[in-house]
Nucleic acid binder design. Sequence first.
DNA 1: TTATTATTTCGACGATTATCGAAGTATGCT
DNA 2: AGCATACTTCGATAATCGTCGAAATAATAA
Lengths: 95, 95
Amino acid sequence: MDVKKYSNIMKALSHPNRLELFLEIIKYQEKDYETGGCLISEIVKYFNIGAPTISHHLKELSNAGLITTEKRGKFLIAKLNKDVIHELNGIFPKL
Amino acid sequence: MDVKKYSNIMKALSHPNRLELFLEIIKYQEKDYETGGCLISEIVKYFNIGAPTISHHLKELSNAGLITTEKRGKFLIAKLNKDVIHELNGIFPKL
DNA sequence: TTATTATTTCGACGATTATCGAAGTATGCT
DNA sequence: AGCATACTTCGATAATCGTCGAAATAATAA
């Protein structure tokens, strides 16, 4: 088990705004838009933090391998990295 | 979903030393010692950080509800809070 | 009682972090 | 071309964090 890697994932989700951002991205993922992902410009409206901060948080989620981002025109689309979700659910033993 | 609560749990596990400490406590839990938990003075030896730091980390794990601690004589015993593990495994959707 | 061991508390230090405003880049619209 | 929109980069600031050494507490051993 690569402790450093997992603690980095935890760190990426250790801030309320960032966790909520991530959960929102998951939610939109499931809706399966024509985009195939989550339009950042849409969900940003629900958060009362500035655009620079959102950009920063997205980069942290991306660095941790939780999401990938893709630019479509002037928009940014975030996609969940499904592999990591499986890993996440496997860190702790089933008791 | 209580985002603040979950981000607090993630924060408690967001540092390599603290995550490793937690995983070690889980491991000893499974061994089911006569103590019924994990002797801190034993596992401390594997970490090259000082006792004050260990004490600090244990309190953070405890505050996040991940473990409980119990004093037996001059020793400290840490026990996993199994309920939280179940919650942890339920945060993210199964994809 | 004195010494040793296990852990905690305190105070401090350097490092990291979340956030912001301002300016920059890039795309699309008129 | 000129303007608006979506996002990023930069620089700064206040707050939080991990770690330590020293001192305190508490329990056991000699």
